[in-house]
Design a binder for these strands. Structure first.
Length: 302
DNA sequence: AACCAGGCACTTA
DNA sequence: TAAGTGCATGGT
C-alpha cells in the first residue's frame, strides 16, 4: 500500500507551505488537500489538525520514497519550533509574520527544477509562472502516474482526473530550438532557458547538483554565470533547493516589507542586505518566507 | 485600459 | 560603479 501516515506533526500547514511562493507544482483540491509533483513523482496530501499538531496522510508514497525523498523534501530534519522562536524574538513585526505563517516549511526542491522555475519567474506573476511551467512539463516532460491510483477506491477523492508529467531534464531542453518552445509562451525568457539548459547539460548537470555540498559563494558564482540568472533568482535557487538558509531573496514584495514595516529605502539593495543579516541572523532565508507570505496575503485582502 | 509582475542583460555615462 | 532601458506576455 503506497500510503504513509505521519502523526503529531508540528509546525506544518499545507496552505502555508505550498502557497508562500516557493513552489509552483502544488495545487489545492476542492477539499483543501493538495496534489503535487516533485522528483518525477506525484503525491497527494491531506492534513487533519488537532490542536497544535497535525496528522498527515501521504498518498502514492512508498516507505522507500518517504525516506529517500519526502522526509528531506519537507525539511522534517529541522526544528521549526526553535527556528521560529529565535526569529520571533527579534522584533514584533517578525513575531506577527511568524504567527501568521506558522506552518511554513522551506521545501528542499530539485535544483534544476528550481533553477528553471525561478529563471521563468522574472518580471511575471505566480499564476502565469505556474502556467509556463505546466506547459513546459506537459510538452517536454514524461507522463507519470496519477496519485489517484493509490487512493482507496471506496472513499471518494477530490483529486481531479488529468495527466501528470515530470519536469523535463536539462538534456531534453538543451536539445530544443526557440521555435519548439513557442507554444509554452515563455516570452523573452525562452532564450535564457535554452542557454542555461545547454550550460547545465554540458557537464551532465553534475556541477549544479553538486552545489548542495558547496559553500555560499561558490554556489552564487556558478548560478550568476548562467543566462537569465541574477542575484534575486540565484538567491531563490540557493534557498529553495541548495539548503543555503542564509540567502535572502529581495524582490518587489520584500522591498515593500522593508519600506512599509522597517522603514528602509526599498531601492538600496546593500542596505537591505546588511539590515536583514543583522536583524534576522543566519536563518534569514526563513524570515524572508514568513515576511513574503505575510505581506502578500495582507495585500490580497485589499 | 493602463499598469505591472518573485528581474535580467545590455548600454551609456 | 551607477543609472537607464527594452523585454514578451498576461493578471489584476
Amino acid at each position: 500500500m503506497k500510503h504513509i501516515i505521519l502523526e503529531g506533526v508540528r509546525d506544518f500547514d499545507l496552505q502555508h507551505t505550498f502557497e508562500c511562493g516557493q513552489c509552483f507544482r502544488w495545487n489545492r483540491e476542492t477539499d483543501g488537500s493538495y496534489t503535487g509533483i516533485a522528483f518525477g513523482k506525484t503525491i497527494h496530501i491531506r492534513q487533519q489538525r488537532t490542536g497544535d499538531t497535525a496528522t498527515l496522510q501521504l498518498y502514492n508514497v512508498s516507505d522507500d520514497d518517504y525516506l529517500q525523498i519526502w522526509h528531506d523534501y519537507f525539511d522534517f530534519n529541522r526544528d521549526y519550533g526553535k527556528l521560529k522562536q529565535d526569529l520571533a524574538s527579534q522584533d514584533t513585526i517578525l513575531q506577527d509574520a511568524v504567527s501568521f505563517g506558522h506552518g511554513i516549511r522551506i521545501l528542499n526542491q530539485d535544483p534544476w527544477e528550481t533553477l528553471v522555475s525561478f529563471l521563468l519567474s522574472q518580471n511575471s506573476n505566480i499564476p502565469r509562472i505556474k502556467q509556463c511551467i505546466e506547459s513546459l512539463c506537459s510538452q517536454f516532460g514524461e507522463p507519470i502516474g496519477s496519485p489517484k491510483d493509490s487512493i482507496n477506491q471506496n472513499c471518494e477523492s477530490s483529486v481531479q482526473e488529468k495527466m501528470y508529467y515530470s519536469f523535463p531534464t536539462a538534456e531534453r531542453l538543451a536539445g530544443l530550438t526557440l521555435e519548439e518552445l513557442d507554444g509554452c509562451r515563455l516570452g523573452y525568457r525562452a532564450k535564457y532557458l535554452l542557454e542555461t539548459a545547454r550550460a547545465v547539460a554540458a557537464d551532465g548537470g553534475k556541477v549544479l547538483s553538486g552545489l548542495r555540498g558547496a559553500d555560499y559563494c561558490t554556489s552564487m558564482d556558478y548560478l550568476l554565470s548562467l543566462s537569465g540568472v541574477g542575484p534575486k533568482v540565484a538567491s531563490c535557487i540557493m534557498l529553495f533547493s541548495l539548503k543555503k538558509y542564509n540567502s535572502f531573496p529581495v524582490d518587489v514584495w520584500v522591498r515593500k516589507v522593508m519600506k512599509q514595516l522597517y522603514g528602509l529605502d526599498p531601492e538600496d539593495a546593500s542596505a537591505i542586505d546588511d539590515f536583514s543579516s543583522r536583524q534576522f541572523g543566519p536563518e534569514r532565508g526563513l524570515a524572508q518566507q514568513y515576511l513574503f507570505y505575510y505581506i502578500r496575503e495582507r495585500e490580497r485582502q485589499c
